[in-house]
Computed example of a mutant assay.
Amino acid sequence: MKTFSLFLLGIICAGVLVYGNMYWQERTSVSSEEKSTVVTESASEEKVTDNEKDVDSLMGNWPEEAQATFKKTVATGNPYKLAIVGSLALGADENGWSEQVKTELTDTYRDTIEVKIFQYDTTSLTFVNGENVDEVLEYEPQLVLFEPFALNDNSNGVGGENNQESIQIFERKLKEQNEEAVLILQPTHPIAGATYYPMQIEELKEFAEENGIPYVDHWSAWPVDDEEALGELLVDSQEMPSEEGHAVWADYLVEYFINE
Rank of each mutant, 00 (worst) to 15 (best):
F4K: 14
D251G: 00
V224Y: 10
L204E: 00
E171P: 12
S242A: 13
K47R: 15
L105T: 11
E260M: 04
T103D: 13
P187N: 12
W219R: 13
D226T: 08
V16T: 09
A92N: 11
K47G: 00
E228F: 04
E131A: 15
E135Y: 06
E135P: 06
V144Y: 04
L88F: 07
H246W: 13
N78K: 15
S155A: 06
I117G: 01
E33R: 12
E206D: 14
N259V: 02
F207C: 06
L8F: 10
Y19Q: 01
Y197N: 04
L82T: 15
G212Y: 10
K102P: 05
E239R: 02
G20I: 03
M59Y: 00
E64P: 00
P190G: 02
I169H: 04
N259K: 03
G193R: 11
N132Q: 11
L8D: 06
T123Q: 10
E65D: 15
A43Y: 03
E34W: 03
L82Q: 11
S237H: 10
L6N: 10
N162M: 07
M240Q: 14
E176I: 05
Y215V: 09
F170V: 03
H218I: 07
V38I: 15
K35A: 11
L185V: 02
L230K: 09
G157T: 02
L233Y: 12
P190V: 07
F127Y: 15
A229W: 09
S87W: 10
N95D: 12
N211T: 05
Y256F: 14
E171Q: 10
Y215W: 12
I167N: 00
A194N: 05
I84E: 03
L143H: 07
L185F: 04
L105E: 04
I113Y: 08
F146R: 02
A83S: 14
Y23E: 07
S237Q: 08
E239P: 07
V55Q: 04
Q238I: 09
A150E: 06
V133Y: 02
D111S: 13
S32M: 13
S155I: 01
H218Y: 14
V254D: 01
Y80E: 07
G193M: 05
E203D: 12
